[in-house]
Design a binder for these strands. Structure first.
Lengths: 192, 192
DNA sequence: CATTTCATTGACTCCAAACTCATTGACTTT
DNA sequence: AAAGTCAATGAGTTTGGAGTCAATGAAATG
């Protein structure tokens, strides 16, 4: 059985991770440990009781985030679904994490190396799902003869482009605003 | 006529901008003024004689970069060229500035606001050229009925995705390695 | 030639952020 | 209930980068 202390410690750890998620989503990964401590309502030193370095905090946070978003996508993706419903599911998942995901894709190159592995992992899971859906369409000869990786990279490229250039397209959530347009036109692109 | 002093000052200014370009291309925009001073072979203080703040240095650098790349693209784009040759011209220009451009698109959101205007400007010029080329193709009914901005954003999205995720695709220059593949498949996507 | 201007220097200040650690008091163990 | 443990604290330390400024000497001026 867990002691009060263990329970308390885990709760504090979660508090810090939750706060870090929010702060990074709002301010980007250049936000400071001070901001995170304030948001979590713990003292500055407490952060370093739970995470030896900031980089370690970021890595732990990203690992949690990776699992969560992957599982979320998995839940929303049904077996034998159509291309349309899968793309919609994908965007719906991203909408839930939009601010944080936006920071992630736009700052991934300045994050520690381990962060990139998490990022690759997230993309792999999307790739896997999309692959299944497209293969069925290809058999039915409705999708063009284009290498799978181009089909995949076009989709992520388009979505990421809208996300990183959010300010060009929308004041609030670019995905919410352009969801249908993006799906419709992307499908037009890859279908015959 | 310019005095020796004026000439010298302008030369030093250029020296600093050239060094900053190289350092930022190699290290990203989190590189320090110390690194730039060392690369330019001037003392640290000299940088602040020419630029009141780091942000100002970055803005001046980006304005120069914007003009240069826009002009370069303009020179390489002939009148009445085909879609293929324009896309090739675009990639060829980007290859010349690849490292710096990569940093720019991946860190644009953490740069000062003025930097974004330069970035928007660069994209507008590409958009303008692409627009002309595509319109001709559309008249000849070879390009699908898809909104122009989606056509444009798919292209930039694809290119930027390859650039920001360089490490997934190539050890050296992702554009050099995948140029033909990108052009060929992108055209397949947008043509009937 | 004497005087003034000014580009350059680099040691210095200032500041902000990451990380430390002695102290505290609540919880756990015996 | 006494002794021991440990999560949390927050003031203090360290580090490193941005920006300052008095001094220097070469160039400009009269």
């Amino acid at each position: 059985m867990k002691t009060k202390r263990q329970i308390q410690k885990e709760a504090t750890r979660k508090l810090i991770l939750d706060a870090a998620y929010q702060v990074y989503a709002n301010e980007g990964f250049s936000a400071t440990t001070n901001q995170i401590a304030k948001a979590a309502n713990v003292s500055h030193g407490t952060i370093f009781v739970h995470f030896p370095t900031v980089d370690n905090l970021i890595i732990c946070l990203l690992e949690r985030f990776g699992s969560e978003i992957n599982e979320h996508l998995h839940l929303l993706s049904e077996k034998d679904e159509s291309l349309e419903t899968f793309l919609a599911a994908h965007i719906n998942v991203l909408i839930c994490y939009e601010d944080f995901y936006k920071r992630l894709i736009s700052e991934i190159n300045s994050l520690p190396q381990e962060a990139k592995y998490v990022f690759i992992n997230i993309q792999s899971v999307v790739s896997l799902h999309l692959n299944q859906v497209i293969e069925r369409d290809k058999e039915q000869k409705v999708v063009k003869e284009i290498p799978m990786h181009i089909i995949f990279n076009s989709w992520l490229g388009l979505i990421h482009y809208y996300l990183t250039n959010n300010y060009l397209f929308a004041a609030g959530s670019v995905l919410t605003d352009h969801k249908d347009e993006l799906i419709l036109n992307y499908i037009k692109l890859i279908r015959k």
